[in-house]
């Protein structure tokens, strides 16, 4: 589902490599953690996988399609089949929870009836249906994160990418979020979660990809026993 072949990424001409010679394959229906210290390249890797940025070397295949073979417009359209939970793409504060979750459906041109039905189902799934008309400002960090997840899965993606989704949440709330991801995975969605929360990593026992200084230093997906 997500395949990196000797991927490298440099920012600017003189800058060092954020990623170097990274190869791995997360199979369809798999779930895994991407880990490493701050600055190891986790966010960069996820941005590349989402087609938000292009690698400087190597190639990336998503569901068998090489991203570099696509024009920008097609790469953008591909994201309609991905769910993405990134910190820098937080909720929009100028609209209520319903409208935040509805955004991907509006952009995909769904009718209002469909939008209403699906947004309510997604909010229900993350346990926030009662907040549909609330402003995101009124929600706690964990609730906001769950709204973000509802927005990410509203298009029924086949791939879910999350960058430190439990970054500033307490352990209990973190566990709740992870359980959501696990449920989506059990429904067939391929999931890759970047985190540096080692406690969470141990507790859940998902396969792990480890980055250090832009290089992949550990890859559980190479081990057939770990594959789902």
């Amino acid at each position: 589902m997500i395949e990196f072949q000797r991927v490298g990424k440099r920012f600017g001409k003189s800058g060092g490599a954020a990623l170097e010679d990274v190869s791995f394959h997360v199979p369809q229906g798999g779930i895994g953690f991407l880990t490493g210290h701050s600055g190891a390249g986790k966010s960069t890797l996820l941005r590349l996988a989402a087609g938000l940025d292009m690698p400087s070397a190597g190639r990336i295949l998503i569901a068998g399609t090489a991203l570099d073979s696509l024009r920008e417009a097609r790469r953008t359209a591909l994201r309609r089949h991905m769910g993405i939970v990134f910190q820098e793409h937080h909720l929009l504060l100028d609209r209520n929870v319903f409208d935040n979750v509805a955004l991907p459906l509006v952009m995909a041109g769904y009718s209002f009836t469909d939008i209403q039905r699906r947004v309510r189902a997604a909010l229900d799934k993350v346990g926030l249906l009662k907040y549909e008309t609330a402003s995101p400002r009124e929600l706690s960090g964990g609730e906001q994160q769950r709204v973000g997840i509802a927005r990410a899965v509203i298009n029924r993606p086949s791939l879910l990418l999350a960058d430190e989704p439990t970054g500033n949440l307490d352990p209990e709330m973190s566990m709740e979020i992870m359980n959501l991801f696990r449920q989506f995975n059990q429904a067939g969605v391929t999931v890759l979660i970047a985190t540096h929360d080692l406690a969470l990593l141990r507790e859940l026992g998902f396969p792990v990809l480890s980055l250090r200084g832009g290089r992949l230093v550990h890859n559980d997906f190479q081990n057939p026993r770990m594959e789902h």
């Binding site: 938000l52 953008t76 994201r79 309609r80 991905m82 990134f86 793409h89 991907p104």
Partner: peptide
């Protein structure tokens, strides 16, 4: 710009 970035993220076309 937040709105632009999020729209781009969820697959909005340039035109949108």
């Amino acid at each position: 710009s937040d709105e632009i970035a999020v729209s781009h993220l969820v697959g909005a076309s340039r035109r949108q």
